[in-house]
Computed example of a mutant assay.
Amino acid sequence: MPVVEPVDDRLGALLSTHPVAGERYLRTGGAALAFALGGVLLAAFLITHPDIVAGRLLALAILPTLGGLPIAVVQLNRARRTGRAARYELYENGLAHRTAGRTRSWTWDQVASVDADPQAAEAGPEQVPVVGLGQRLGRHFRCAVRFTDGSRILVDGCTADGPAIAQALLTHRPDAVPAQEAHRGTRVLLWTMPGVIAASCVAVVLMYQYMNSNTEDDIGAGALVALALAMIVCILVFVMSLVAFVMLLIGRRRVSAGPR
């Protein structure tokens, strides 16, 4: 068992340690990157062999790239920032965050804001594919903490027993509510996202009708590929906006319900 070096005399006795699964970020980010690169290679193959498939299907080859690349960027950036030896430590009078070559610590009095729902991670594996993907990526639980010295930490589902950290923070600092501005952006998104969803859906329907009511010779090969790419982008916007809208609604419902 590794010996834990003292962090700060103010923190008191060590209560628990919570390793961060940095390799999980790397694994999921690498898989998403491979998925995105597969889409690029498939698209390149179809472009160099236009006689194999119609231009409409070329856009489908871009879909893995559009879906996998953002996930790869986020997860690999987390892996870079977290490293392989990161962990949180709970003490009697505060907490600490250790990474390779760096240790930060704070007392409970230094906690300025806590935005978390400890019950969010208690549910079992979600059967809904999109939400299940969020669980694999560690997005099913989130605890954002801001301290009086300006430091911030973000504990997510890749942290061992992350809800225990959130519960400790809320127990010692029940008055550390999120800034009102943090919820203002959520309200704006909840009002604007339905419009984005509707607009992208209408655009997909109109482009699909146009492409299927005209032959490839009438539209032209270049225009057909451009329309197909535009349609797939609109589909991606529709799916991502719909998922984000649902997740925001779920999160707002949890906040409104409060601790159980």
Score class of each variant (00 low, 15 high):
A223M: 14
F245I: 00
R87S: 08
G12L: 03
G222K: 03
C143D: 15
P70E: 09
T148E: 10
M231T: 15
D8R: 01
R146D: 13
G39Y: 03
P6E: 04
F245H: 13
G30K: 06
V237I: 14
R142F: 09
E126Y: 03
Q167M: 03
P174T: 01
G29A: 06
R84Q: 12
A86E: 15
A144K: 10
N93E: 04
Q110I: 02
A36L: 03
R260H: 09
A120L: 01
L76N: 10
P194D: 00
A59Y: 10
I71N: 07
A198P: 05
N212G: 06
R136S: 09
V177M: 14
A85W: 04
I47D: 07
Q209H: 12
G195F: 15
R24M: 10
T148I: 02
Y25Q: 01
G220K: 03
G134F: 07
V225I: 14
D51G: 13
G124Q: 09
N93R: 11
R173E: 02
R253S: 10
N77W: 12
I235C: 15
G185Q: 10
Q167N: 10
G150W: 04
D156K: 07
A199D: 06
P118V: 00
R27H: 04
P118L: 00
E23Y: 12
L76E: 10
R184V: 11
R260L: 07
L60C: 11
A244T: 10
T107W: 00
T171H: 09
S200T: 13
L26A: 15
P129C: 04
A257K: 10
P194I: 00
D9S: 14
I235Q: 06
P118Y: 00
P19S: 07
I47E: 12
S16F: 09
W191A: 14
P178Q: 08
L190A: 08
V53M: 12
V74G: 03
I232M: 15
M1A: 12
R136N: 06
G162P: 06
Q167K: 13
R81W: 05
P259T: 00
L137W: 12
G83I: 06
T192S: 15
G157P: 06
G124Y: 02
H97Q: 12
F141N: 06
T107K: 06
V202H: 02
R187I: 07
D175F: 05
T215C: 07
H140W: 04
R104V: 02
D51K: 13
P125S: 08
A164H: 09
E23Q: 11
F141E: 06
P118E: 00
L41R: 05
R139G: 00
